[in-house]
Amino acid sequence: MTEQTVDRGLAVELSDLTRVYGDVKALDGLTLHIVPGELVALLGPSGCGKTTALRILAGLDHATSGTVSVGGKDLTKVPASKRDMGMVFQAYSLFPHMTVIDNVAFGLKMRGRDGAARRTRAGDMLDLVGLGEHADRYAHQLSGGQQQRVALARALAIEPSVLLLDEPLSALDAKVRVQLRDEIRRVQIEVGTTTLFVTHDQEEALAVADRVGVMNAGRLEQLAPPAELYSAPASRFVGEFVGLSNRLPAEVRDGVAAVMGREVPVLPGSATGSGHALVRPESVSVVADPAGPATVTTVMFLGPLSRVTCTLADGTLVVAQLASSDALRLQPGDAVRLEVAPAPVLVVA
């Protein structure tokens, strides 16, 4: 089964999608190309249009303008029931009056497959998500995480052209969330289906996606692999939304920024002249120095790493992340010197 499905992935193209509700623009010219077999996560605050984009791709909502195509075929006018997309909803989407296996087989039934074939395929799908033994239970007899696995199996049972995940983990406990997140990625790689994953949780998006698209106010701010998104944000919104950043005063001249007495290369898209550099906590190091200009305010132990907050003479707070072995030598009240690593930074006005 995996042999034939690995290269089943189809390319997905959302072109210039706009969606207007009354006088609110939920999508404002979104263009997104997903390559076959890829998992793209759309990340953004609530109301940024990510769910609208997914629902338009599913056919559950329609675009005011723009087109949707999958595998080169224009689907803009095709109804949701004929789009062959598997979707996993936020929660409670299992049909409560059907057993687990009947839920998984539902899409096959709608496609007119005979009973035996349905059961075999549905059973395979349940095995894939590790719930083969729960086939005859009802939804309410399963935990939230198990329900979402069944929903995933149900979506995959129809061999969908695209898999759509609409915040599938947001209703779960933190621990289950991490487990299921990894599980989803494993299954997705195994079946090779092109996948769009919508979430507001950046950790989730960065962990599972091949590429992450950050959305804001109906637009795609940046689409890049997780590491690039983190180390080279293309805009102020991305820099501030993804990960933790210090905003430190900076002077930019000739493509180099002066930040706290250090020369640091700047990223494309940075402002020129004086502005603020977005500096990651792990790019700041703290050196004990009785003559240093900063004072340690708090030391927060996070396991192997610790987070140290320091106050500059002018009251600016700077957060640094260091190995706990280094951080534990510091005490609140200690005078320290802060040094910025020469990693490229984004400077904003």
């Binding site: 599913a58 056919g59 559950l60 109804p79 949701a80 029931s81 004929k82 789009r83 062959d84 997309m85 598997g86 979707m87 909803f89 936020q90 409670y92 989407s93 299992l94 049909f95 539902f106 899409g107 709608m110 496609r111 929903a151 149900r154 979506a155 129809i158 759509l164």
Partner: peptide
């Protein structure tokens, strides 16, 4: 009747 049930059914190919 949750709207997701209808949407899930439609997605799975139900008229």
């Amino acid at each position: 009747l949750r709207p997701q049930w209808r949407e899930a059914a439609v997605n799975l190919g139900a008229s």
